[in-house]
């Protein structure tokens, strides 16, 4: 709308070099902060962790490992993970993925500045509690 205004007035007022309008950069910032979320995950339970993105940019989330877990061989060693927004007593994910722990990132996306969260859910495959580690890299 400002561009329209400027163009309509060039006949009435001499444009100066200081009238140049610059658009905000839309390039997402790279992740520069790494947070580690560790804890104990129980069967069928969910856990979440809130983090602050300082500026519009890329967020990478990796489920590094789940250890001490008892899983029978006929069920997949997978967990549900997803980024979202803290809501109520939990984290409301925008999307979820079912992933196996290991090298990532398992989830990568561009986020606005603000407070976000990552939620980890056990899918009912474990027979007991396990330790987990999630890495969140963000601007």
């Amino acid at each position: 709308m400002s561009v329209v205004t400027s163009a309509a007035c060039t006949g009435d007022r001499k444009a100066s070099t200081t009238d140049t309008l610059t658009s905000p950069s839309l390039s997402p910032a790279d992740p520069i902060v790494t947070e580690t979320f560790t804890g104990t995950l129980r069967p069928n339970a969910t856990v979440f962790y809130a983090f602050t993105v300082a500026t519009y940019g890329t967020v990478n989330i990796t489920l590094d490992e789940v250890t001490g877990v008892q899983v029978s061989e006929d069920v997949p060693f997978e967990f549900e993970i997803g980024p979202g927004v803290p809501r109520g007593t939990g984290c409301s994910p925008n999307s979820v993925l079912v992933v196996a722990p290991g090298e990532g990132p398992h989830s990568s996306g561009v986020f606005d500045a603000g407070i976000w969260c990552v939620r980890l859910r056990e899918l009912g495959n474990m027979s007991g509690p396990a330790r987990f580690r999630i890495t969140i890299a963000h601007p």
Partner: peptide, 8 residues
Amino acid sequence: GFGYPSGT
């Protein structure tokens, strides 16, 4: 209190 979610 009021605050902001941070970690857990």
